[in-house]
Design a protein around this nucleic acid. Structure first.
Lengths: 352, 352
DNA sequence: CTGAAAGCGCTTACAG
DNA sequence: CTGAAAGCGCTTACAG
C-alpha cells in the first residue's frame, strides 16, 4: 500500500499504460512498441535466429530504444538458471585466496556470470550454513576452503554443481596444484645446499594441501635420506608461524618449510626477534609467493603457483559441468615454480 | 524436453505429485503438508505474527520437515527486493580494496544480504557496463572505485541506492577517511624531523582521495612554510612508484609521500636499486598500512585507516538508504592513525 | 486469521 | 515464424 502510493507519486503524471514498479522496460513494453507478441520478444532476445530477421531487427530496435535490460531474477524462475556462481572462502584477507577470487571473477564475468563471494571466517558449520543460504540462488559453487570434511563436500556436490580448489573430495571436481612437484623442487634446492634435517610447519589439520605437502615431503625424505619432522601451526597465518617458532628451534632442523608464505614470514619474524640469522643459522621457505614475500628481508624462497589461473580454471570447469550436467574430468595438477631468494642458504650447524 | 526427461529420469520412481524441477520443496508442498493455503505459508514465513500461533507452528514444522529454503529469486520478483548488494572495485588485488570488501561482506552477511563483487580492471566504460549489468539484480551498490566521473556516479545513484567509498559525488551518500587529519599528522611528523621540501606522488588523476590528500598537503605547506610538489604516478601501484622515482629525485625533496603504500614501496625499491639510502637520504611515507608495509626494510611509515570498518559502514549506510527510501546523512570522515616506522628520519641534504 | 486470485517478468511447449 | 497460454515460486491486496 504505502509502497504503491509512493511509487505512483513518483510516476510522471501521464496516463501511460501501467509501468512496472521498477521503472524499467519489460518485454511487454518492447512487444507493444514493436507490434509483436511478448513471447516473440523473448525468443528474439534469448536465442537469436529463432525469429525472422526483420522481426528480430524491429525487436532489437525497440529494446534499444527502451533501454531494455533483461531481469535476471525473472529469467531465473522459469529456467532455473541464475547465471550466478558462488565462491566460498575461509578468509578473504589471505593473499592466496584473493588471487584465486580475482581469477574466478574474471572467468565468470567473461562468461556473463555474476560472482558472489561468501566468507566463512568462523567455524565449518558457519560455512555449511552460508552455502545452504546461497544454494537456491546460484548455478554452482567454487569451494576454496579447508574447513569442511570431504564427505560433507561430496554431499553438497550431489545437490549443486561444485568444484573444489586445493582439495580432492571423492567424486568431486577439483583443481589442485602439483604438490609432489612443488615439494620435490624445493627439497632438491635444500638438499643441494646441504640440508639433511628439515622441518615442515603444517597448515590447518583439515587442509588437504597441507597433508599433500607433508606426504610429498615424506617421500622426498626417503629418496634423499633426510630427517624430516612435522610441526603444527594452529593457523595458516603469520601468527601461526610465530606460534610454531619455538618448536622449530627445538627440533634442531637446519631448514624449515612453512605450509605457506604467511607461516614462513611469521617464523622469520620470530627468528629476527630472537637474533637467529636467516639463512645463516636457519633456512626458511614457504609456498604461494604472496605479495610481501619479496619485500621481507631476506626475501623469501618460495614455490609459486598461478592462483589467478586456478580460480579461472575452477570456474571454467564449473561452467562446463553446468553445461553438461555432469562433473568434468579433472585437469592435470597445476604446475608450480620454485623461486629461490635470500631466505635459504647453505646448511650450517646452529650454535646451541 | 531433454532437460525434463533428464529430470524425470532422476526422480524416484514413485508417483508422488509433480515435484518442482529443482527438487526443492516449495511453499505449496508445505501448504499441502500443513493443510493450509500457500498464501498462509507465505505469511507465516515472511512476517511471523500475522498468523495464528498454532498455524504458524504447524507451518514451521512442515517447513522444517521438508527442509524448505525460500527461493530468493522467486521472492524478488513480486517484491522487487533481491537481498543482494554489489560492491564494485577497480582492482581486487589492491590490499586496500580487499580489506574494504571483507568489511562489506561481513556487514552484508550479518543482515542476511548476499554480496556480489564486480571488478572493473579496465576502463571506466567497462565499469559502467558492469554496473549496468548488475543493476537489475541488486538492491544497492557500494562503489569503491576511482574511475567514474562524479556526474556519472550521481546519475547511477539516481537509479539505485548507492554509497561511494572514498569519493564524494554531489548528492550521493559516501564514506570517506579524514584526509585533512591524516595529512596533518603525517606532515607534522615530517616537519618535526626537519623536512621543509616534500614531494607528493599522486594516485590516478580521477582519484578523489588523491586530490584530497594533495589539497590537504597544500594547506599544510602554507601553515608550515613548506615547499611541496605534486608528482604524477600513472597508477596507484608499485609500478607507479617505480615510474615516479626519477621525478622524485629530480625534485630534490628530502621527503616523499606516496598516495598509497604501494607507490611508497615502489619508490623505496627504486631508491634501494639506486643506492639511495632510506631514510638517511630520503624519507618515504605512504597511506593505508597494507600488509607488506611492515615487512619491507626499513618498515614503512604510513597512515592507517580502518578499511574493514569503512566497508562495513558503507553497507550499513546503504541498507539504511534502502530501508528509508532516501540517502542517509553522511557520517563523519573516518579517523586515521599515523604509524611511524623506519622509513622516515631526520632531513639531511642529499649529496648531488 | 485465512483463502482465492492476480501478478511479478520471464520462458517454452503447443498450435497454427 | 509467431501467437496464446501456462507456469516458474513467491507476495499481497481483497474478501470473508
Amino acid at each position: 500500500m504505502t509502497t504503491n502510493e509512493t511509487a505512483d507519486a513518483a510516476e510522471p503524471a501521464s496516463d501511460a499504460p501501467k509501468r512496472p514498479r521498477s521503472g524499467r522496460a519489460t518485454i511487454y513494453d518492447i512487444a507493444e512498441l514493436a507490434g509483436v507478441n511478448p513471447s516473440t520478444v523473448s525468443r528474439a532476445l534469448s536465442r537469436p535466429g529463432r525469429v525472422s530477421a526483420k522481426t528480430e531487427e524491429k525487436i532489437r530496435r525497440a529494446a534499444a530504444e527502451l533501454n531494455f535490460r533483461i531481469n535476471p531474477m525473472a529469467r531465473a524462475l522459469p529456467t532455473g538458471r541464475t547465471m550466478t556462481l558462488a565462491v566460498v572462502v575461509a578468509d578473504i584477507t589471505n593473499p592466496v585466496v584473493f588471487r584465486t577470487i580475482r581469477g574466478a571473477e574474471r572467468a565468470a564475468a567473461s562468461s556473463n556470470y555474476t560472482l558472489v563471494i561468501a566468507e566463512s571466517q568462523e567455524s565449518g558449520s558457519a560455512e555449511a550454513s552460508a552455502i545452504e543460504r546461497l544454494l537456491p540462488s546460484v548455478d554452482g559453487i567454487v569451494l576454496a576452503t579447508t574447513r569442511l570434511a570431504p564427505e560433507v563436500i561430496a554431499d553438497i556436490a550431489g545437490r549443486v554443481p561444485l568444484v573444489a580448489i586445493n582439495s580432492r573430495p571423492p567424486g568431486v571436481s577439483s583443481v589442485v596444484t602439483d604438490a609432489a612437484d612443488a615439494v620435490s623442487q624445493l627439497i632438491g634446492h635444500l638438499v643441494a645446499l646441504g640440508h639433511t634435517s628439515i622441518g615442515y610447519v603444517a597448515g590447518p589439520p583439515t587442509s588437504w594441501s597441507s597433508a599433500q605437502r607433508w606426504e610429498a615431503l615424506l617421500a622426498e625424505s626417503e629418496r634423499h635420506g633426510l630427517a624430516v619432522v612435522e610441526i603444527p601451526s594452529g593457523s595458516p597465518t603469520i601468527e601461526g608461524g610465530h606460534a610454531a617458532y619455538r618448536r622449530v628451534i627445538a627440533s634442531r632442523v637446519t631448514a624449515v618449510v612453512g605450509f605457506n608464505d604467511l607461516i614462513a614470514i611469521g617464523i622469520m619474524q620470530e627468528a629476527a626477534a630472537a637474533g637467529v640469522r636467516v639463512p645463516d643459522e636457519l633456512s626458511v621457505a614457504g609456498f604461494d609467493d604472496i605479495f610481501g614475500s619479496e619485500l621481507i628481508v631476506p626475501a623469501l624462497t618460495t614455490v609459486r603457483a598461478d592462483l589467478d589461473r586456478a580460480g579461472a580454471q575452477a570456474v571454467e570447469s564449473l561452467l562446463a559441468q553446468i553445461q553438461d550436467g555432469r562433473p568434468r574430468e579433472d585437469a592435470e595438477p597445476m604446475p608450480t615454480e620454485l623461486i629461490v631468494r635470500g631466505s635459504t642458504g647453505p646448511a650450517s650447524a646452529r650454535p646451541l
